[in-house]
Write a protein that binds this DNA or RNA. Structure first.
Lengths: 183, 183
DNA sequence: GTCATGTCGATCCATATGGATCAATCTTTC
DNA sequence: GAAAGATTGATCCATATGGATCGACATGAC
């Protein structure tokens, strides 16, 4: 049990009933605070803009809506992020011939450049964050986290009764959970 | 590899270089969106208020500042959360005799009641979230996450150069990382 | 004692966030 | 074809957020 770098109160919390929820929140929120401040400070953009840029570069021609299934954020957040990326010239939109409502998104050369920078930085941050684990442990951790992510109730909860999601909010994408029809 | 409930794009992202960062963020941000909406909707308070209430109940007499080492949030966020909890009568502050600036915080009976409700709900949510794992896998996952949390660079990054934290922001508590002096 | 400095928690204010709504477009039904 | 309904992405607006500052108190040097 490697409690050594955690203070007494944290140790106590991480021994309580809600330990798992508390612990993963602690990790991700703590990490986000550091990372978000860095990105906002260095690149004058909200983190969601960089997330969106990442998604667009990775999936050329992706639609705005689809970005939401990768980064579970509200619809208007993505909309604004894309608008910012367009203003800065990092992203261009090709009109979709099949559907006039859709925006088909592509990164520009400039966008790719800045993304490469930011990705390199993120990789170093990732290495730093996971440094306490051995390579094997990292694999194990990743595998287990993947199981959690693939669970049916991550984005929609049965016990919290959060099934009437408003339109602008997270929606459990039918694509994301293909053949579910729970019980 | 249990990719079954993840769509194609997510599967791709979770196979890329930034997979670990992407995956844990996906889990926690997705979960938070659901949970926050529930707490805000059901209890008319921001999540940080409930976090603070939890901390105060768990550590009677805790100071506002110390809550920050459990929940890595900015100072003014905690300040506001406590102010709300006081207004609602969930928390009372005993004056500290040793230091006139400090607030020693305690939950009221009313606060304990509502906390019990919320905790019960969180427990069910936790069970739901981790349901894809066996008991043994949960232990493994928890142990590895604990190692990450206990790492030196969670709240302060060397590679992002985020060491000049402003006063109202996250501070790597000296208590939290006791005898570090990194090389 | 006084003055400088440090720390705790509240408040100010500009910005980010997210729920709701809207216009535009597509699909379905008759 | 017209009308109803669904879907995409932008915008409106009230609220939350977080960096900076402030006042109150504490501590240390002289």
């Amino acid at each position: 049990m490697s409690f050594m770098a955690l203070n007494e109160k944290l140790t106590t919390v991480f021994a309580g009933d809600l330990r798992e929820l508390m612990l993963i929140s602690y990790i991700v929120l703590g990490n986000n605070a550091v990372t978000n401040r860095f990105i906002e400070g260095s690149y004058q953009m909200p983190v969601h803009a960089w997330s969106s840029l990442y998604a667009i570069d990775r999936f050329p021609g992706i639609r705005a809506k689809e970005i939401r299934s990768i980064f579970p954020r509200p619809q208007n957040t993505i909309s604004r992020a894309i608008s910012l990326l367009e203003q800065r010239g990092y992203v261009r939109q090709g009109a979709s011939e099949s559907d006039g409502r859709e925006k088909r998104l592509f990164t520009t050369t400039q966008g790719q450049q800045i993304l490469a920078e930011m990705t390199a930085m993120s990789l170093r941050r990732q290495a730093e964050l996971f440094a306490p684990l051995t390579a094997e442990e990292r694999d194990t951790f990743f595998g287990l986290a993947l199981k959690i992510a693939a669970g049916q109730n991550l984005l929609q909860s049965v016990v919290l009764g959060s099934n009437e999601a408003p339109s602008s909010t997270l929606v459990a994408d039918p694509i994301l959970n293909p053949g579910v029809d729970r019980d």
